[in-house]
Lab assay of single mutants.
Amino acid sequence: GKELVLALYDYQEKSPREVTMKKGDILTLLNSTNKDWWKVEVKATANDKTYERQGFVPAAYVKKL
């Protein structure tokens, strides 16, 4: 199945390749080969529509579930 990670801290994206997350968010882990930056998929809701974004977050800010 898919691997999930838990956001340990809030993170505000600093570039278009990154994604914003809030502490407590559960994210889908896409790639953890880089030890510093993990690629995740974030589900977000805006205007009653759910959309998914993929991007990088600092590996130290998340932990595998």
Rank of each mutant, 00 (worst) to 15 (best):
G1D: 11
K2E: 11
K2C: 13
K2M: 12
E3Q: 14
E3N: 10
E3V: 14
E3D: 11
L4T: 07
L4D: 04
L4R: 09
L4W: 13
V5T: 02
V5G: 10
V5E: 00
V5R: 00
V5K: 00
V5N: 00
L6P: 01
A7W: 02
A7F: 02
A7T: 03
A7Q: 00
L8H: 02
L8G: 01
L8I: 09
Y9K: 14
Y9V: 10
Y9D: 06
D10G: 07
Y11V: 00
Y11N: 01
Q12W: 11
Q12M: 13
Q12K: 13
Q12I: 14
E13I: 05
E13P: 15
K14R: 13
S15M: 07
S15H: 10
P16L: 08
P16Q: 09
P16R: 09
R17P: 05
R17Y: 13
R17F: 12
E18A: 04
E18G: 09
E18V: 05
E18C: 05
V19Q: 01
V19P: 01
V19N: 01
V19C: 07
T20K: 04
M21V: 10
M21K: 01
K22D: 03
K22H: 08
K22Q: 10
K23D: 02
K23S: 07
K23L: 04
K23R: 09
K23C: 06
G24W: 06
G24T: 01
G24L: 03
G24K: 02
G24Q: 02
D25T: 06
D25Q: 14
D25V: 04
I26M: 05
I26Y: 06
I26V: 12
I26N: 01
L27Y: 08
L27A: 06
L27V: 06
L27M: 13
T28R: 14
T28C: 09
T28M: 11
T28D: 05
L29K: 00
L29N: 01
L30R: 02
L30G: 02
N31D: 15
S32P: 05
S32W: 11
T33N: 12
T33A: 12
T33V: 09
N34H: 11
K35G: 08
K35I: 10
K35Q: 09
D36S: 09
D36L: 13
D36Y: 15
D36Q: 14
W37D: 00
W37K: 02
W38D: 00
W38N: 00
K39N: 05
K39V: 15
K39I: 13
V40Y: 02
V40R: 00
V40M: 01
E41D: 04
E41H: 07
E41Y: 07
V42K: 15
V42P: 06
V42T: 15
K43Y: 13
A44S: 12
A44Y: 15
T45N: 12
T45P: 08
A46C: 14
A46R: 13
A46H: 14
A46F: 14
A46S: 12
N47P: 10
D48M: 08
K49P: 10
K49F: 12
K49D: 10
T50N: 11
T50D: 11
T50P: 12
E52M: 15
R53I: 08
R53L: 07
Q54C: 12
Q54R: 11
Q54K: 08
G55L: 04
G55C: 05
F56Y: 15
F56Q: 03
F56C: 10
F56M: 07
V57M: 00
V57G: 01
P58K: 04
P58A: 02
A59T: 05
A59C: 06
A60H: 13
A60I: 12
A60T: 12
A60F: 08
A60G: 11
A60R: 14
Y61Q: 05
Y61V: 05
Y61M: 11
V62P: 01
V62A: 02
V62C: 14
K63Q: 14
K63G: 08
K63L: 12
K63A: 13
K64Q: 08
L65P: 03
L65T: 05
